[in-house]
Amino acid sequence: MMDFGFSLSKSSTLNLDTADLSLYKKLCELSPDARTCMACGSCSATCTAGPFSGMSVRKVILDLQRGRDVKAMVQGCMLCGKCIMVCPRGINTRNLILNLCKIYDR
């Protein structure tokens, strides 16, 4: 291949046609309340680990909905459960993370 000193850039577009939502669907089977997230962000704002590890429950759910992997983010969770206290939709966020870990461990 000829080197032109530049090449096709990778597109940052999220393509829902090719997004693999199997992880999200598995999660919804175990934690159906994940679907009710309205992305208010209170979970992330209150997160103990987030500012230092990049963990964000809001982003975890959104990324799963867009077919992206969230393993690294989930590993940053300390499972303290602070996020459960603030979720206005009553999502059991701590359980959601544990369920995700279970899916990853399978």
Binding site: F4, F6, S7, L8, S9, S11
Partner: peptide, 14 residues
């Protein structure tokens, strides 16, 4: 700008 040509060709490719 040669460093930007990747964007240029990516749009054409699209």
């Amino acid at each position: 700008v040669k460093a930007n040509r990747g964007y240029s060709i990516s749009n054409t490719h699209k």
